[in-house]
């Protein structure tokens, strides 16, 4: 019975993406480890194990815990292919995830479908390529001007300083209008948390807000607060029949 259930849930495309994703993850780990190793060999500079370990002990408890939370929180929103690719290319919360949400909203696809898988993978891949290109071009060609462009004295500096409210304001607008009833609770909770814990990192705040938002939406759904006028009328009629 259990086997039959699993077979029914299996999707050849998703299975293939898992296969490619596993290969790409392992390949990336090996490739990344080659970078510090080649720096050591090229410059004949070998830090001691203790020197590296002391540094690692300060970041591993925070970043490895965050990694577990990020995988659990983001993978359902991203989908299979996009999750593997996003975790390779990084900048997930500030770029890849909003980009995927925007593309899925634009294509009007439903999360969990093959169409959503396709759109999110294409969005993540495009975003990764464009980001890689912009950073590479910027570093190689624009490095002499870059400092002046983004320096405190630059007239367009505020545009970069306030990129996050601009990004999440425009991204959120569509969701807030469409799902206004379930939007209040997580926003209010985020503001209250920030009021009492102003230095909480966004990386910590995101999973908290996601859990609160899901629980609140589920509660509202169960209480019938998300029903349309027609649904409410139908439920009322059914009740009076009984």
């Amino acid at each position: 019975m259990k086997k039959a259930k699993n077979e029914a849930a299996s999707n050849p495309y998703i299975d293939r993406m898992h296969f490619y994703g596993r290969i790409s993850s392992v390949a990336t780990v090996l490739f990344l480890l080659m970078i510090p190793l080649s720096i050591c060999i090229r410059f004949n500079a070998f830090p001691t194990f203790t020197e590296v370990f002391k540094g690692l002990m300060k970041v591993i408890p925070i970043f490895w815990t965050t990694a577990i939370l990020e995988i659990i929180t983001f993978s359902p929103m991203l989908g299979t292919g996009a999750t593997y690719l996003s975790f390779v290319t990084g900048n997930i919360t500030n770029l890849k995830l909003p980009c995927v949400l925007n593309a899925k909203e634009g294509a009007k696809v439903k999360t969990g479908t093959d169409e959503a898988e396709v759109i999110s993978t294409i969005a993540t891949a495009t975003s990764s390529i464009v980001t890689t290109a912009i950073i590479a071009i910027g570093v190689v060609a624009l490095s002499p001007f870059l400092r002046s462009l983004t320096s405190d004295a630059s007239p367009i500096k505020p545009a970069f300083t306030y990129v996050m409210p601009a990004l999440f304001g425009s991204l959120g607008a569509g969701y807030f209008v469409k799902h206004w009833r379930i939007s209040f609770v997580p926003i209010i909770v985020a503001v209250v948390i920030l009021f009492f814990a102003p230095t909480i990192g966004t990386g910590t705040l995101v999973p908290v807000c996601v859990v609160v938002s899901i629980l609140a939406a589920y509660g509202m759904f169960k209480l019938g607060w998300l029903d349309s006028r027609e649904e409410r009328a139908a439920k009322k009629a059914e009740k009076s029949k009984k």
């Binding site: 969990g112 959120g172 969701y175 807030f176 503001v191 009021f195 807000c209 996601v210 899901i214 759904f221």
Partner: peptide, 25 residues
């Protein structure tokens, strides 16, 4: 329900950043 949960997940994520723009230090 799956659609509502999916939307709530996105809104939760966005709320953290909107909250930061409204009340972050």
């Amino acid at each position: 329900l799956p659609d509502i949960i999916s939307a709530a997940t996105f809104i939760g994520l966005i709320s953290a950043f909107v909250g930061n723009a409204l009340a972050g230090k």
